[in-house]
Design a protein around this nucleic acid. Sequence first.
DNA 1: CTGAAAGCGCTTACAG
DNA 2: CTGAAAGCGCTTACAG
Lengths: 348, 348
Amino acid sequence: MSARDVRTREEAMMPNLAEVAQRAKVSTATASLVLSGKDVGRVSRATAKRVLRAATEIGYVRNALAAGMRSGRTSCLGVVAEGVLSTPYAVDMIKAVLTAAAEHGWSVILNDTGDEGQRAHEAVQEMLSRQVDHVIQAAMYHRRVDVPSDLPDVVVLNGFADRPGVPCVVPDETRAAFEATEHLIALGHTRIAHITDTSGVVAVGLRLRGYRDALEAHAIAYDERRVIRGGDAPEQADASARRLLALRPRPTAVFCFNDGMAAGVYRQAYRAGLRIPEDLSVVGFDDLTLISTNLDPGLTTMRLPHYEMADWLTRAVINDGPGGLHSGITRMPCRMVHRGSTAPPLTA
Amino acid sequence: MSARDVRTREEAMMPNLAEVAQRAKVSTATASLVLSGKDVGRVSRATAKRVLRAATEIGYVRNALAAGMRSGRTSCLGVVAEGVLSTPYAVDMIKAVLTAAAEHGWSVILNDTGDEGQRAHEAVQEMLSRQVDHVIQAAMYHRRVDVPSDLPDVVVLNGFADRPGVPCVVPDETRAAFEATEHLIALGHTRIAHITDTSGVVAVGLRLRGYRDALEAHAIAYDERRVIRGGDAPEQADASARRLLALRPRPTAVFCFNDGMAAGVYRQAYRAGLRIPEDLSVVGFDDLTLISTNLDPGLTTMRLPHYEMADWLTRAVINDGPGGLHSGITRMPCRMVHRGSTAPPLTA
DNA sequence: CTGAAAGCGCTTACAG
DNA sequence: CTGAAAGCGCTTACAG
């Protein structure tokens, strides 16, 4: 074959290592050593300088494909996201992965398999084919994740694996719900309702647990009638909110499973002529700023640690590899963002 | 060197083409032909079957690095995003790129250089090093994009290049603003205000143009006092909205530069005791559903064609290459989403 | 401190 | 219809 058979680097004016070596009058071995920073104590400073200058002069860019094939390491991270980009909730995770990876000089191959998670197998094959060093499997919300068995170096972000031995990181839902509820208790509330979801997502149980634990810790009786279950969409959030406001005696505070449900409470409270926070304190969950900052007053809510989880996991994987990680579930704390939707009860 | 020097496919139990060929009792040339689908009329059906069976039996996954190096094509798309993941506005573009690429069997290397766009050069070097076939440069909002000169096969998504010869795609802002305004005119409004941005982003001028054109097309006098300029944050949106409501005679409708500003109008209208849409019709822009569906009533707004732009561009690049594209600006239409925040004026 | 040479796993003209 | 062999651009023991 000739140089014309394929779209060569030469055609695209991409010089290769041999040309750098030739120009610097050294072997490709020496040039490689210098250009990959492995030259200390092995190549004289003068030679190294010559190589670097030559590389700069002809605009050398190393072919990562060739390097990866020879060395067996690609400095490439595969991210198999399951619908992460379909939600505004979790995009921060991708952002964190990209940022942390870039800081380490790593690249990221991203594949979002969509809400169904159907294309997951294909995505994994693709990652293997591209020889990524590690795979991060990211879930759009805290849930159980099916981890392909043919994937050795895998970790799970925002979910837990269906098999043991896989490092996972999730938000500490129960603790967050405990703190949110305790915040309301500290303000003097005792009739605290909880609006939650009808779906079976794990966070529902974990946050309910935190809510109950907080009540119990402060000797407030748990009243099942104050736990309202409804859907996620705006109309369903409205329905839940109406049921909340119909409770007698009316709760003076509500802890909502997410910000969308809190938005429903705002809409119905205004329609009923109630003031927030004077007549009703509201705490949300997620901190979708598009919702929380556009409500009036701004919504006090628990921020999910999407960025922190992804940042931590990415750095850990790059620095230690999945093997260096605790092979189990790591829980990360959520932080409460105070904006003005809570106050002491008027009756206090 | 020996097989133990590097982390080989053997260690990871990754069979290579030679093993497939050996098992199928053919040469690697024949195996390669079959496994890359180039065997029609070149390899007998029986031989092809043997190869495919052998590959399946030993769980062969082709090494895309080696294939890419030899063939000069990687079926890999580089996406240099400039803060796209930092905004809820434009994530749909990434989603569309990933989906379209996956459908063609392409992988995507994603790099978000953050809001500043500082790391753009590094990102480009990275892409070149990884030998991506094409690069898509994506902007977080419609704006001028500095396209690195050392990047031959590049196209711009949601922006326009600073140099000629680069295919670009952007939303048709002027037409969208024209249609939004015309919708209000068709309902019978004549006192139509426009709340816009103080920043110098290009969309400000383009949408103002569409607003003015629509008024002119329907012989409604343009009144500069009805164009209110303010910032983007909730408090600034509130300030703009207050100025709107202080106008005398009060406009019966308002076309907002974005949904966040429309949310400010809702807040202030409610505080002033005005009903939407009876007393004031509101049209937004962007269709951030977290805002538009959580307002009461739901916000009628122009949806930006982020998904469509990215989908179209990705398919075009993969199928034709950047060279096959119109080397200039392509404008894509926005679609109006009707939700109930507009109605005929009461005085009509 | 430096270089010659092997080899990563594939694809591709080319010869038969 | 099939195979032998070259070569993509690197990195890495190894020899000197």
